[in-house]
């Protein structure tokens, strides 16, 4: 026997789980992780896991975490791209689990892309 409160708790927990079951909305953030052989070898799976965990924990229901293939900058893997509607795509490089969490907190939640982690910054510095 479940109380009304328990049923409501199930509703809320499950809502987060089924949230990405629908064709992506144009207003959503899309975080895309490069998951070709190069990315996976560099640890992209941990990055992906960290991203999905963050999105769930922070209840970010306007964010879709997805994966893609190799975009050709294998030495910078794991590569993560953030698509924000109406803005230029931001490409992050060498994204480990820690960087992934920072990107979610700073870029997605507060609208401040982290310049030091971007591809353009990495290319300029090296």
């Amino acid at each position: 026997m479940k109380t009304l409160e328990e049923l409501q708790a199930i509703r809320e927990r499950m809502k987060a789980k089924v949230n990405n079951r629908g064709v992506a909305d144009a207003s959503d953030f899309r975080i895309v992780v490069g998951m070709a052989t190069c990315g996976i070898a560099a640890g992209a799976r941990n990055t992906l896991a960290a991203l999905t965990a963050e999105v769930e924990e922070k209840h970010l229901d306007n964010v879709i975490v997805s994966q893609t293939g190799c975009i050709g900058i294998c030495r910078f893997e794991p590569v993560v791209e953030v698509f924000e509607p109406g803005k230029e795509k931001v490409t992050y490089v060498h994204v480990d689990a820690e960087r992934a969490r920072q990107i979610v907190a700073s870029h997605i939640m507060n609208g401040n892309p982290i310049n030091e982690y971007t591809y353009s910054y990495a290319v300029k510095e090296n």
Partner: peptide, 9 residues
């Protein structure tokens, strides 16, 4: 954990 993809058959 949140699943990143859902496969519906």
């Amino acid at each position: 954990m949140l699943e990143r993809a859902h496969i519906l058959v």
